[in-house]
Amino acid sequence: MKPFLYTRQGGLAIISINDAPWNKMTLEFMDELETLIPKLKKDSSIRAVLFTAEGEENFSAGMNLKELGPKLANPNELEALFDQRLRVLSAIELLGKPVIATLFGYCLGGGLELPMSCHFRLAAKEGCKIGLPEMDLGTVPAWGGNTRLTRLVGRMHSLDMVLRSKKIDGPEAYRIGLVNEVVENNQLKNRAIELGLELTTQPPIAMREIMPVIIKGDDMSQDESFRMERQAVLNTLGNSESQEGMMAFLQKRKPVFQDN
C-alpha cells in the first residue's frame, strides 16, 4: 500500500496520508515525501499544495514508534532519521508555494509538526486532539516542533502545550493562533481544496518572492528584512505578472496569471 496518495486538481497538488485510521508517518512515508517535494518545487504547473489524510478519523497520530525502536541503539541512525525529518519539513516550509494542511482527529507529534511547516492550517470544529505529547514518552519533540510552535503561538502557549503534553481542540487552536480557520467536520477537506484553488490563481513569481521574506523575517534584523523585501519588489516589477496585474486593474477585470 502506498504511504500517501497523490492527486491533482488543476494547479493544486493533493497529498493524502494513506494509512487510515491512524495515518502514521512511516519511514517509507518520509522517504517518498523527500523525493516528491523537489518535484513539486520544480513543476511550475503546481501552484499550491494540500496535505490531508485518508479516512475521517485522524490526520495523523505521528511517527510509527515501532520503527523507531531498532534505531535507538544506534545514535548515528537516530540522528540521520531526525535530520531527514527536519530537512523534509524545512523543504515544505521553503517550497516557495503555499501549502495547506487539514487537522482532524489525532494531530499528534509528527502529525502536528508537519502541519506547522505548512503555511495554512484548517482544523475541524469537533474531535481534534492537537498536541506534542512527547513528554508522556519521557522525551521531547524532535522534528522542529518546539521552535515552530513557539513562533506560531508564543512562549506561554508553547510551554503549556509541551510541558503538559496538552491536547487541544480546533476552536482552542484557533484562539491561540495555531490554525487559520475552524471548519465543520464534513466540510473540512472541501474547504481546504477551495482555499488551495484560490491560492493557485495568485501570481507565482510574486508568491515565490514574498514567501521567504515572511517566513525568514523572524530570523533577521528589521533592516535585513527590509532589504530582502525591496529585492522582492525589484524582482517582480515590470515582469509579465505585474504587467497583467496592472492591465487587469485598468480594465476592471480579474487578472489571469500564467505558470512561470
Rank of each mutant, 00 (worst) to 15 (best):
19 D>S: 14
23 N>C: 10
25 M>L: 14
29 F>V: 05
29 F>G: 00
29 F>E: 05
31 D>N: 09
32 E>Q: 14
33 L>H: 09
34 E>F: 01
36 L>Y: 01
37 I>P: 01
43 D>H: 08
45 S>F: 08
45 S>Y: 10
46 I>R: 05
46 I>L: 11
46 I>P: 00
48 A>M: 10
48 A>I: 05
51 F>P: 00
53 A>I: 15
54 E>R: 12
55 G>H: 10
56 E>W: 02
57 E>H: 04
58 N>P: 04
62 G>T: 06
62 G>V: 03
63 M>V: 10
67 E>Q: 12
68 L>S: 01
68 L>W: 15
69 G>H: 08
70 P>N: 00
70 P>W: 00
70 P>K: 00
71 K>L: 14
72 L>I: 13
73 A>T: 13
74 N>F: 07
75 P>S: 08
75 P>Q: 03
76 N>H: 09
78 L>R: 04
79 E>K: 11
79 E>V: 08
79 E>D: 07
79 E>R: 08
83 D>R: 13
83 D>I: 05
83 D>F: 08
85 R>C: 15
85 R>D: 14
87 R>C: 10
87 R>Q: 13
89 L>K: 15
90 S>R: 14
91 A>V: 03
92 I>P: 12
98 P>T: 15
98 P>F: 14
99 V>D: 03
100 I>D: 10
101 A>V: 06
105 G>R: 06
107 C>P: 11
110 G>C: 07
116 M>F: 15
117 S>T: 11
120 F>Q: 11
124 A>C: 04
127 G>K: 03
133 P>S: 00
136 D>L: 12
137 L>Q: 03
139 T>A: 10
141 P>A: 15
147 T>F: 06
150 T>R: 07
150 T>A: 03
152 L>G: 03
